[in-house]
């Protein structure tokens, strides 16, 4: 199974990695807040300095630029339709769209940088210390834990389809993939029940707390 880990470089030993997780999380929260609150005109002035700041941190962290940029670009499928629709239906839609893209790109960039320089468990521990709702921490932990497992299961099913269909393509392929998604949903549901049983056996009360 092929895995691409979000926090692949979080175990490096650099000054950025050694910084307290709390400081790093606060920095990112502050940055995202600034990007969200600042009016559009100010964004055009502050975007470049903020990007430079993030790049300096990136250089000091020794995390490959390609790793961060590649993961930041996952935002593109969400941004492109917004840009296109804004440009068509809104007056001065293009400038609005550009500002929105800058806000989104820098926010995601800073988040990807955060998980690249901080162990996931340290982020969770810090959030827990800050009394972040336990149920949210558990959901984040489960996302991290089961994302790879579910993508692995999906890969296995796609491989089986390819092997038994003599390759991909054909008119029925979308139907097959939608069926795969449905099976993945059922499998995930059943797994959730088994995980819940395992949690109950170790004191989980079903409401985000422990008995």
């Amino acid at each position: 199974m092929r895995h691409s880990f979000w926090d692949h470089f979080s175990g490096l030993d650099t000054p950025v990695h050694r910084l307290s997780p709390g400081v790093k999380i606060l920095f990112v929260i502050l940055l995202v807040l600034i990007l969200t609150i600042l009016p559009g005109d100010y964004i055009s002035f502050s975007a470049l300095p903020l990007l430079l700041l993030l790049i300096i941190i990136l250089i000091f962290s020794r995390v490959p630029v390609k790793h961060v940029v590649k993961r930041t670009l996952v935002i593109l499928p969400l941004i492109i339709p917004v840009i296109v629709l804004n440009s068509i239906f809104m007056e001065s839609g293009l400038s609005h769209s550009l500002i929105l893209s800058v806000r989104s790109f820098l926010s995601i960039f800073s988040l990807v940088l955060l998980v690249s320089v901080t162990r996931f468990s340290d982020i969770m521990k810090t959030l827990s210390r800050w009394h972040f709702p336990r149920i949210m921490i558990m959901i984040l932990s489960f996302m991290y834990r089961y994302f790879f497992l579910l993508t692995g299961e999906m890969e296995k099913m796609i491989r089986a389809v390819k092997l038994r269909s003599g390759g991909t393509g054909g008119s029925g392929i979308f139907k097959i993939y939608s069926q795969i998604l449905a099976i993945l949903f059922i499998k995930s549901y059943e797994r959730a029940e088994r995980v819940y049983h395992a949690m109950l056996m170790r004191g989980y009360d079903g409401n985000g707390g422990l008995q």
Partner: peptide, 11 residues
Amino acid sequence: DDQLFMPHVEE
């Protein structure tokens, strides 16, 4: 995989 539901072994 049903039992180890936390991200890291220690947790």
